[in-house]
Design a protein around this nucleic acid. Structure first.
Lengths: 239, 239
DNA sequence: TCTACTTACGAACGCTGTTCGTGTCAAGTA
DNA sequence: TACTTGACACGAACAGCGTTCGTAAGTAGA
């Protein structure tokens, strides 16, 4: 097919094509989708730009750099949390529910948790809301201020660390499900069991318990451990 | 100065220069030095090769890739740990000593802890030795098998996570010391204090306790919390 | 001496984050 | 209406990084 000739400056020239419109929110949502489907390591400026039908350089009008994009991603995810109204009679169960929620929320985005590990101090709006909510629950439980202050740190570290741990057991972009970690843990179990027993008697003997994978049992164990341990610090003094 | 002419194949030819000799151990030690002085982000194959007076490609005869180098680095660091002989009468104090040792050992290498976060299951010789030692201590305390199995996971996560947290408060390559985290925490304290009190009443009111920085108090708090909490799980049943 | 294997390592490749320079568009002003 | 300014869009290019490929050198064994 022969293309029609183009006449410069002729009457009725076709109007210039409108530039596409980006926004910070659009970029963040797109980046989150990339992480969800392909994992954190697949997230790069070109990949996000490709999804948006533009070039990587275009993103820099809206986000300073990739680090900022990651911060925005995390804040976006933390914004999905619902904060309970503290009830002194039920603070403990509320705390556990909230932490389950927080962890599931983070785990739902696969290995994004790895980025969360590097930004543990809450500085963004949603993360601060989350920290405030957790503090409120611990205070509702009547724990002393300093115990709550240190406690919220320990608890947060645990929550994020377990999310990282969980994500390392599934493939990037893969949805976490009942058996998603099983193949990995089976492999570890086999590895533990095959170690030389004279050097690692306990690991070999306990390969099964070490790699036990029953729903959220491991996380729940940690929650009880943390809260029992926290309550036990109520009488602690600080110089 | 006019250079002396070079005669090909002449008598008394100067012997060929000997190729330098690398080794996996040398590469690991060099990489560790780079991390110690410049931080984890400065660690790359070219940087290590430069320190060794060679090219990055040379390293690949000894390490498969950068990931393997990181694994070797961590194993190298874990190898510095001394493992206590468990004493049932003192298992708890021994556990705390061991964890202090493990954390200080990791923290001594600055932000290398971030790499440790991504390899939480012990698979290398030294890490396995460490896990075995920790298990031995918990078992010496008479705790049930499954409690020890899950406990060693929680404790390990906490130890590594706090090392990561610690490293995020000092500059890469900077030695951790008494006041190294103070400027950072002062900044956070100021930030917390300046937040809108109607949205964040507890964070604003507790800015001081939240950013309290007294020696290893925060870590020690976590140790007691964890061990108290662990002991409290002794009677727990698992389906 | 020759062969085979191991190690050493430069050049080059693909990928990633980011900057620079140019173009486009919209709003405001004269 | 024409011009100016600022914000946004975005290709080309740059520097840096992990890694591979091909070639060279050294060593051990036959």
């Amino acid at each position: 097919m022969t293309s029609a000739p183009t006449w410069p400056g002729s009457f009725g020239t076709e109007p210039k094509r409108k530039k596409r419109t980006l926004s910070r929110e659009l970029i963040v949502e797109t980046a989150l989708r990339v992480v969800d489907t392909e994992g954190l390591d697949a997230l790069n400026m070109r990949r996000v730009a490709q999804e948006l039908g533009t070039g990587a350089a275009s993103l820099y009008a809206h986000v300073a750099n990739k680090d900022e994009l990651l911060s925005l991603l995390l804040d976006r995810v933390y914004a999905d949390l619902r904060h309970p109204a503290p009830d002194p009679e039920r603070w403990r169960e509320q705390a556990k529910d909230f932490l389950r929620q927080a962890r599931n929320n983070l785990v739902a985005h696969g290995d994004l948790a790895r980025a969360a590990m590097e930004q543990n101090i809450p500085t963004s709006p949603a993360a601060l809301d989350s920290a405030e909510a957790m503090l409120a629950l611990l205070r509702a439980g009547g724990l002393p201020e300093q115990v709550c202050a240190y406690g919220v740190d320990v608890i947060s570290l645990y929550m994020v660390a377990t999310a990282v741990e969980e994500s390392s057991r599934t493939k990037p972009g893969e949805q976490r499900g009942e058996g998603s970690a099983q193949p990995y843990l089976d492999g570890i179990r086999g590895f533990f069991g095959s170690l030389p027993a004279e050097r690692y008697p306990l690991i070999v003997a306990m390969a099964g318990p070490l790699t036990r994978n029953v729903g959220d049992e491991r996380f729940e164990f940690g929650l009880d451990l943390l809260l029992d341990g926290l309550v036990a610090q109520a009488g602690r003094t600080f110089d």
